[in-house]
Nucleic acid binder design. Structure first.
Length: 830
RNA sequence: GCCCAGGUGGCGAAAUCGGCAAACGCACCAGCUUUAGGAGCUGGCGAUCGCAAGAUCAUGUGGGUUCAACUCCCACCCUGGGCACCA
């Protein structure tokens, strides 16, 4: 027998599988779609942390193949976006060239692991044949009125020179470069994601979706649904009302002031009628100069200015002074709040700072009815109403409903559901992204504004955005022009604006002069639907063939980083639901089961990074130990979803295990001549059961350890039955496929092990004849006795009491109770 | 501040319908083998006491429920992640 040489056998089997299409069996009755979050092909290549999720899906994919499923397991590239563009700028090459180079490196690295990827289905978001359909989806969204041009203030990264969506921020910093973003009013395209908020929330149902609770919670919080009421207050002396949104109308008898956001529309439109307009303007000016950072460093210290106007509380006719303060945000609710300082900490702080009255209207469980003077007294979560007219004595939850009914009946308010989630800011002032399939036509704009057009001449989106005309589907894709200067301008228009030949075109509707949109789509666009394209990657007529879509969707298993919980996963669900609405797909949700991959940290406990010089390259590990070892190690190192530090010594441990498996070949003998060892049979079938269940439940670490126990046991035998050793090879094969197939062929099989059947455990063999029964005295272990597995209670108790080791603890004591747990223990209570 | 996940040997961890705490692996120690080894094999490896048999203690802290608690309940501490002046 020659030595275990992974280098030689791994190459050999990778070629064999590819050539014989071993894992491309797509005509079986049951299907399984295993999906990885496709990578961003950066210039740095892979480190050992990246493939962990891919290994897990590959183990699952091979397991499902062995169980007789058709398995779809594709891979592709998410290659548009800022990092690719920045990398290209740095290396002074066109992003296209940089991206192709990086993809080649990534692909070569991935191939060394022996994954079951069907490379015939490879997609890249930057291929015109792919982004044609990204543009098509946008066009459909536009047609349905779900895309609109906006000039509202948005997050602007001064370093990347582009706008960013809320999902692209970490706190108030650019997720890519860490620069603090500014709020700038910019022209941009926005998708009406909030129209889908309710469905995005409701379908996050643990019953329907096999997602980790953690990710469901994160998305729920991000969507941030709240139930409240919009209340309109009349303003004294002028013919206007101010509308506020509140979730606590029950406390409204305690309202003593109103605060407006300095940058709100209401203020912008009415500042000139404020009696104190000079001070107000100064305050607006001062606020606009403050960055987010300044405001955070001020902590919760409240500042503000009185407008000179009073709003009237319609409940009791009380005059409430109207202020401006920067703690009220223009983008939240209506951009104005009603101040109830007795029962809201922020309102309390503001009232203290401005010297406004504080009224108690809720009594908490402590029964305290004294005037509210300290922040700790601010009662928010429970209690009974006082000083509140017809609400007095009610619990706050009942009061809330009663006053909502009252306000609605009186006609000065309306129940409203609010979401924290905002619409999706969808344009970037960058070169390396999908161009928008839109043309601006002044002629059409005039026509729409004048109202002189036929019904059905313009789509919903065209009417919503006068002048913007969608391209015709047959003219897609609109390719990125090849240019020399694709550097960012920073003017607010994208680099494409500089290419006049490309920008100037004809209106697809009327043929008059038009100009193209020069922003591009964000990186998230292409990744919001790629899982559909794998199913039908070369279709030129449709995004996906309807029958194929029905055959494969939904994705059965989706594995990737948790950082996408509120970004990619939200965007993809949103688009999927839209595609469902236009009948392009047949499922309401795209991803049935979702599991996040735990990070692999460097051996020093820090994040693997060039900066710390602690990056481990998978190529090195594979050349030293082999691909099967790194696969097995990453599955063995700990619970899959947990962050764990890398240990190269740990890899050598699993390599030793594989060597042991290899050496066992020598002991294999023909099953007919050699009688099966009952104890080993028992353990073997227990292991089959454990490995099967563990793979299904993503507990790979315990699956591997149970195989180690089996192999240690086999190592004690002088001879092994071929049939037993073969079963070991099959259950090991998803983890260490190269070795498994090599052993399989050495055992005389002509076909790949992956065309075999996954073994079923034999329940008879698993049943133990004899067991160790634990004997406790007052819950403390005193002895173990070997008894028949199905021992009767009375007999077990007698044997336990008779135990020599137990006797000394019983002498002179009264036995009060004896507890018998079948198959486990006897506990003697004295 | 709010939400989520977690806290077990020197390290990664295992055990959760309450029932033998530390499986499996790493590191370490001793011995065998070897010219040698960073190779292989055998044994040891939570703490304290003890020559030993064994005893006692031990799963972040403090209580509670129970014959029995890593597991359930209450309060608190710490770590990681998310959100955050969201009205």
């Amino acid at each position: 027998m020659n030595k275990y040489n992974p280098k030689a056998i791994e190459k050999k089997w990778q070629k064999y599988w590819e050539k014989n299409k071993v894992y491309k069996k797509y005509n079986r009755p049951k299907k399984f779609y295993a999906l990885d979050m496709f990578p961003y092909p950066s210039g740095a290549g892979l480190h050992v942390g990246h493939p962990k999720g891919y290994i897990a899906t590959d183990v699952t994919a091979r397991f499902k193949m062995l169980q007789g499923y058709s398995v779809l397991h594709p891979m592709g590239w998410d290659a548009f976006g800022l990092p690719a563009e920045n990398y290209a700028l740095k290396m002074k090459m066109h992003p296209r060239i940089a991206v192709d180079k990086n993809i080649a490196v990534f692909k070569k690295q991935l191939e060394m692991f022996g994954f079951t990827y069907d490379w015939d289905r490879e997609v890249s978001t930057t291929d015109p044949g792919y982004y044609k359909w990204t543009q098509w989806i946008f066009l459909k969204l536009f047609e349905k009125g779900l895309a609109y041009e906006s000039h509202e203030p948005v997050n602007w990264c001064p370093s990347c020179k582009t706008v960013l969506s809320n999902e692209d921020l970490e706190g108030n910093e650019c997720e890519r470069c860490g620069t603090v973003v500014e709020q700038r009013p910019m022209r941009q395209w926005v998708l009406k994601m909030t129209d889908y908020a309710e469905r995005l929330l409701n379908d996050l149902d643990k019953e329907k979706l096999d997602w980790e609770a953690q990710i469901i919670e994160q998305q729920k919080n991000w969507i941030g649904r709240s139930e409240g009421i919009d209340i309109a207050y009349t303003i004294k002396g002028i013919d206007k009302t101010i509308t506020v949104y509140t979730t606590r109308p029950d406390t409204n008898f305690g309202a003593t002031f109103v605060v407006l956001a300095p940058d709100s529309n209401f203020v912008a439109e009415n500042v000139d009628i404020f009696p104190n307009k000079e001070e107000v303007k100064k305050y607006i000016e001062a606020t606009s100069k403050k960055t987010e950072l300044d405001r955070i460093s001020e902590g919760r210290k409240k500042t503000g200015v009185f407008t000179g106007l009073y709003a009237v509380n319609n409940l009791n006719g009380k005059k409430m002074p109207m202020y401006l303060s920067d703690f009220v945000l223009a983008t939240v609710g209506t951009g104005a709040v009603v101040g109830v300082p007795g029962h809201d900490t922020r309102d309390f702080e503001f009232a203290k700072a401005m010297g406004i009255d504080i009224i108690r209207v809720v009594v908490g469980s402590d029964g305290d009815v004294s005037p509210i003077e300290r922040a700790e007294q601010v009662q928010e979560e429970e209690g009974k109403m006082i000083n509140s007219d017809f609400l007095n004595g009610l619990d706050i939850f009942d009061a809330k409903e009663k006053i909502k009914d009252y306000i609605e009946k009186k006609g000065f308010g309306k129940r409203k559901i609010n979401y924290k989630m905002r619409d999706w800011v969808f344009s970037r002032q960058k070169y390396w992204g999908e161009p928008f399939p839109l043309v601006f036509c002044q002629h059409c704009a005039d026509k729409i504004k004048s109202g002189q057009f036929k019904k059905g001449e313009f789509s919903q989106g065209e009417l919503l955005n006068p002048g913007w005309i969608g391209m015709r589907e047959k003219d897609l894709p609109l390719e990125l022009p090849k240019v020399k200067s694709y550097e960012t301008t920073g003017t607010g228009e994208g680099p494409l604006a500089g290419i006049t030949k490309w920008v100037n075109t004809r209106c697809p509707k009327c043929g008059e002069k038009g100009r193209r949109e020069t922003n591009t789509m964000p990186q998230w666009a292409g990744s919001s639907w790629y899982y559909l394209r794998y199913i039908d990657p070369k279709n030129k007529k449709a995004l996906i063939d309807k029958k194929k879509e029905k055959d494969w969707m939904p994705v059965d298993l989706y594995v990737g980083g948790i950082e996408h919980a509120t970004r990619h996963l939200l965007y993809a669900r949103f688009w999927h639901k839209f595609l469902f609405d236009i009948k392009a797909v047949s499922t309401k949700e795209p991803f049935k089961k979702l599991i996040h991959v735990g990070l692999i940290q460097a051996e020093d406990g820090r994040k693997m990074s060039k900066r710390w010089g602690n990056v481990i390259n998978p190529d090195d590990i594979i050349s030293q130990f082999g691909a099967d070892s790194i696969r097995l190690y990453e599955m063995f190192m700990g619970p899959f979803t947990q962050s764990i530090s890398w240990s190269t010594a740990g890899v050598s441990g699993v390599r030793k295990f594989l060597e042991k498996v290899w050496r066992l070949q020598e002991r294999v003998t023909s099953g007919k001549k050699y009688k099966a060892n009952q104890k080993l049979q028992n353990l073997l079938h227990k292991t089959i059961k454990k490995v099967t269940e563990d793979i299904e439940n993503f507990r790979f670490n315990t699956a591997v350890s149970s195989m180690m126990i089996l192999v240690n046991e086999m190592d004690r035998e002088e001879k092994l039955r071929a049939a037993d050793y073969e079963l070991l090879a099959v259950i090991l094969s998803p983890f260490a496929p190269h070795m498994a197939d090599e052993l399989w062929s050495r055992l005389g099989h002509k076909k790949s092990i992956f065309l075999e059947k996954w073994p079923k455990w034999n329940p008879k063999l698993i049943r133990d004849e004899e067991i160790e029964l634990v004997v406790q005295v007052n819950g403390k272990l005193r002895d173990r006795i070997t008894v028949a597995a199905d021992i009767a209670e009375a007999e077990a108790k007698t044997s336990a009491l008779a135990s020599e080791r137990v006797q000394p603890f019983l002498t002179g004591k009264e036995i009060r109770k004896v507890i018998f747990v079948p198959g486990r223990l006897v506990n003697i209570v004295i």
